[in-house]
Write a protein that binds this DNA or RNA. Structure first.
Lengths: 235, 235
DNA sequence: ATATTTACCTTGTATATACAAGATGGCTTG
DNA sequence: CAAGCCATCTTGTATATACAAGGTAAATAT
């Protein structure tokens, strides 16, 4: 099985950039030039350039040409993965225990974060995600009851809250912040921490088309959990 | 007609997913069906589907069809931006002070991280990035001297180390980890912290085609700095 | 009845062609 | 000299066509 022509051209371009032969903002061959060099049609050469542009490796300007993108503008990205998948990926034994599953009256900060009236009823759950029976992450979640009416009836040891919520209210947007915090005594108990240690806290708010679905706080001990990211030219 | 046809089809598909009309893993119209519905050629309909697939909103399978991607598989991304740009973006007064700029003998962990011989000479810099004259982040960086010979002669109050290094050794890859740590006493001094508080630590290793360029440790107080991320269907 | 072939759908790759639109430099005209 | 025009490069959009290759299900042969 041969590699497609457009993929060969992409590889040729990426190799030249990776090796340093083509520098930032340098002009690369036009569609017609590439088409002739590789004996392909313009549309095939175009596909290679377009896909590398979409990937952020090249920039194009109508009338001017195609250029090597400047690395400076590339922001580095970190992934937040599903913690159950992460544990399973490293052959850990994943389990989950439900600590709290209740409906409460929303105090002001919670109500604002969920976009509901103060003192209205919202659902709250607290789960502990375990790796090999040791607490790895505490998930405290506040849910807009209008968008997930039967939230309290779910079995979250089988399906995570995030998975359940995406099935009942299609997610359209999510926002995250990550910070370093010191856990309070309640959190220390949940995480089974004997001595205080800094924790990574991820705040995630998710939207669907009908409004804010939920507001989650994910807290993990700094000694056991970290976020990883990877940025490369390879494609 | 101002907006291109392929863009209209993309919008039509995205709208249907955002509104919840099309659910996860549901099959969407084939290229030929879309082409007929919108009175365009198959290649134009194909472009809409291909670009949404590239964006992670659809998945395609040869012989089977095109489907709405499952939200579960979408990993959420966090951006690590240039801290000087971030400060300027919120109208803060950015400044930078150079604490250390030296060549040292690499102990084992540093040598391994940089991919050089133990006890060989490497460059080290420690900078403090300030917002309104208050320390916001400490950057400790170890540099492979073979790839940035005149690193010690640079003025890092004008050009950040990252910017300088990308200009002399084209970056091809970067890896990050983020974790929550407790700063040691030296770091507390640098960050001007009177009481101990948890800090966010980003470790960044950068590669060029000739090898590992540098190894940086970026430490910020948890009370002053957080990472933000955003994920949306809009395109 | 079971196994195989065949027809027909799907997406994937590749080409040739046409025209639109942005950018540039040289030429013509006032 | 300067303003406008034009030829010519670039990328962008759109179409029609051809064949390859994966997947499913019905029709056929064993």
């Amino acid at each position: 099985m041969t590699t497609p022509k457009f993929a060969q051209i992409k590889q040729f371009i990426v190799d030249n950039i990776r090796s340093g032969a083509w520098l930032e903002n340098q002009r690369v061959a036009s569609e017609n030039e590439l088409a002739e060099q590789f004996s392909v049609s313009r549309m095939t050469a175009r596909r290679a350039l377009s896909e590398l542009t979409e990937a952020g490796i090249l920039t194009r300007s109508q009338g001017l040409g195609t250029f090597v993108a400047s690395f400076k503008s590339q922001s580095s990205l970190l992934e937040i993965k599903n913690i159950a998948d992460e544990v399973k990926a490293r052959n850990g034994n994943y389990s989950c225990t439900v600590l709290v599953l209740e409906s409460i009256s929303a105090v002001a900060p919670i109500a604002i974060a969920l976009g509901v009236e103060v003192d209205s009823v919202v659902y709250r759950s607290v789960l502990v995600h375990n790796e090999n029976e040791q607490p790895l992450q505490v998930e405290e979640r506040f849910v807009n009851p209008a968008l997930a009416t039967s939230y309290l009836q779910q079995d979250f040891t089988a399906l995570t809250p995030h998975e359940y919520l995406s099935s009942v209210a299609p997610l359209t947007e999510a926002r995250h912040t990550v910070e370093a915090i010191m856990p309070n005594s309640e959190m220390c108990q949940w995480l089974n921490l004997y001595h205080e240690e800094p924790c990574l806290q991820v705040i995630r708010r998710t939207w669907s088309s009908s409004g804010i679905v939920s507001f989650a706080r994910l807290v993990s001990p700094g000694s056991k959990y970290r976020l990883g990211g990877h940025l490369t030219f390879k494609k």
